[in-house]
Write a protein that binds this DNA or RNA. Structure first.
Length: 111
DNA sequence: CACCTGACGCGTA
DNA sequence: TTACGCGCCAGGT
């Protein structure tokens, strides 16, 4: 039963969470890519906001979400940057000048 | 209420 | 290839 009050926010959140949870270990997806797959083509920023507000105890693999440039969306060298980078490297992902090496991963894609 | 900022992305120059 | 501008839009000042 769906109540009419269900805002698109909830729908959006639910879909994005599901998508992020489905990203295989060692793979990554871009904010915009997730938004698109969820049916919200121009809401890449909303995905970022979602992750920003993510509860501390969440088990979501948020670190597997990066920007369309193949880079981590935190200032290089910042605490958050390092944290995310380490998590990715532990999954076998390698970097080259702050960018994910294309040879070592593949985008989560539908084709 | 105006204005700025941001875990973004894309088209142009 | 790098740099900007603009679209998008929720939140904070």
């Amino acid at each position: 039963m769906q109540n009419k009050n269900t805002s698109i926010d909830e729908e959006f959140k639910a879909r994005i969470y599901t998508l992020i949870g489905s990203i295989p270990k060692g793979n990554v997806a871009a904010y915009g890519q997730l938004a698109k797959l969820a049916g919200f083509q121009n809401q890449s920023r909303a995905v970022g906001r979602l992750l920003k507000n993510l509860p501390a105890g969440s088990t979501l693999p948020w670190h597997r979400v990066i920007n369309s440039q193949g880079k981590i969306s935190f200032p290089v060298g910042s605490e958050k940057y390092q944290q995310q980078r380490i998590l990715l490297e532990e999954e076998g992902i390698t970097f080259r000048n702050d960018k994910i090496s294309l040879k070592t991963y593949q985008w989560l894609c539908s084709d």
